[in-house]
Amino acid sequence: MEFFRPTTLPEACHLKSEHPGALPLCGGTDVMVDINFDRRRPEALLDLTDVRGLYEVSRYDGYVRIGAAVPYTTIIAELSAEAPGLAIASRTVGSPQIRNRGSVGGNLGSASPAGDALPPLLAVDAEVEAVSAAGTRRIPIHEFFLGPKVNALRRDELIAAVHVPVARGPQQYAKVGTRNAMVIAVCSFSLALHPDAARVGTGIGSAAPTPRAALEAEDFLADELAERWETPEPLPDDVVRRFGELVAAAASPIDDVRGTADYRRHALSVLARRTLEWTWAEHGRQERTR
């Protein structure tokens, strides 16, 4: 197995175009597990640990650009205001050691349906910045996940960053696991309210072949909230319940070692109701203090 350790992004892109079978490696919290279990034996490893540019966070025009290698620890510490959903999700990732090494870029690269960072990115319509020797393009997050652990990157592309719109309203993330910490999601849900645009965004994790949005639930809730944004009274029970049902209906879960399909649907409806009540209450507090 060949091992490359570039120090600049152009160098990394060049290596990736020369060796399209090279597997990018950074924190190693997914890749090294697979290699240790002998689940995959890539022809080469492209170690991005020394590409300093991948660790940068920058801001522009209402967006935060989060470098692909920025660890979860940094997101928790520095981005709780601008990307609250992502920050909450980052707190649920693995252990302190994993959060020090793991990054959103890795989550996107693995494209596991259980990736904790992915539902919040769906809920805020993030964009993935893909880079290659040929140039840069931005892939809308809703077009990024093609199948279980399959993403929309070309073989010569690397993930440079993810672009996250700065939050203009409350965001939440909740994850069910069968342990109180350090657990892979049985299912997860992220909700973002966008009062300025009178929209809501959702993201479902671990309950379909890919992370996915609950589009019908989003439309239903946006309609229900249309007349309520400026006078945020508590929502009627039937609205909250219906939202939960629609989120559950958007999932296509399976039975596996971590949980059953029935339970995942049930739990998603509970998480959807709770996160709606939390975000709506927070929106109410923000409106009142405005």
Binding site: T92, R179, N180
Partner: peptide
């Protein structure tokens, strides 16, 4: 949150 069922996974703020 760390003392609640679900712990850091943020599944309840006391509900249920």
């Amino acid at each position: 949150l760390r003392g609640m069922p679900g712990g850091v996974s943020n599944t309840t703020h006391g509900e249920g």
